[in-house]
Amino acid sequence: TETVELHKLKLAELKQECLARGLETKGIKQDLIHRLQAYLEEHAE
């Protein structure tokens, strides 16, 4: 999932992505995007 794609997701979809990775789901859309980006960078293959 790339940065551009995360911005296209709806808030509910971002929350699902966070939940699937065991991440916090509180906060505004930008918080969730930032959290997912950090996770994806950390776990990049």
Rank of each mutant, 00 (worst) to 15 (best):
C18L: 06
E5Q: 02
E45V: 09
R35K: 05
T1V: 12
L9R: 07
E13H: 03
L19V: 10
I33K: 06
A44W: 06
D31V: 07
E13V: 07
E5W: 11
H34C: 09
K10A: 12
T1D: 02
E17R: 05
L23M: 05
K10H: 12
L32G: 02
K26E: 14
K10C: 13
I33S: 04
T3C: 04
E5I: 15
H43Q: 09
K29P: 05
E13N: 03
R35W: 00
T3P: 12
L14P: 00
K8M: 08
K8G: 07
C18P: 00
L40R: 14
E41H: 07
R21G: 00
Q37E: 13
G22R: 04
Q37A: 11
E45C: 08
A38K: 15
L6P: 09
K10D: 15
T3F: 11
L14W: 00
D31E: 13
K26T: 15
K8L: 08
I28A: 15
K29V: 03
Q37D: 15
L19A: 14
L23W: 00
Q37C: 06
L11Q: 04
Q30A: 13
E45D: 09
V4G: 13
L23G: 00
I28M: 13
E24L: 06
E41N: 09
E2K: 14
L36Q: 03
A20L: 11
H34D: 11
K15S: 03
T3Y: 05
L32S: 04
Q30H: 04
E13A: 07
L19Q: 14
Y39G: 06
E5K: 08
L9T: 01
Q37R: 11
C18V: 01
Y39L: 03
L11E: 10
A20Q: 11
K10S: 12
H7Q: 14
G22A: 03
T3M: 15
Q37L: 07
L9F: 05
K29R: 13
K8A: 10
L23Q: 01
E17N: 03
L11S: 06
A20R: 12
H43C: 06
E5M: 11
H43A: 10
E42D: 11
R21P: 00
T25K: 01
C18E: 00
K8T: 08
I28S: 15
H43K: 13
D31A: 07
L6R: 02
L40D: 15
H43P: 06
A12C: 08
E13I: 07
E24M: 08
K26Y: 02
Q37H: 09
V4H: 12
R35T: 04
K15W: 02
E17F: 11
E13R: 07
H7I: 04
L14I: 07
E13Q: 11
T1Y: 04
A38R: 13
L14T: 01
L19F: 11
L40V: 10
G27C: 01
L6K: 03
E5V: 07
K8D: 08
A12V: 10
L6E: 03
K10Y: 01
E5H: 09
E24S: 13
E5L: 08
Y39T: 05
K29D: 02
L32T: 05
T1G: 12
L36V: 04
E17D: 02
A38T: 13
Y39C: 08
Q16A: 11
A44R: 12
A12M: 08
L36E: 03
L6M: 07
E13F: 02
Q16P: 00
L23S: 01
V4W: 15
E17W: 08
L40H: 15
K8I: 03
Q37I: 04
L19C: 06
T25L: 04
K15P: 00
H7M: 08
A20N: 13
Q30G: 09
E2Y: 15
T25D: 14
K15E: 10
D31W: 00
G27S: 02
I28E: 15
L40A: 12
L6Q: 01
E13M: 05
L32C: 04
C18F: 05
Y39E: 05
R21D: 03
Q37P: 03
L19W: 08
G22M: 01
V4E: 13
V4C: 14
H43W: 03
I33W: 02
K15Y: 04
I28K: 15
T1W: 08
L14R: 00
H34W: 08
L11W: 09
A38E: 12
I33A: 06
Q30D: 14
I33Q: 07
R35G: 02
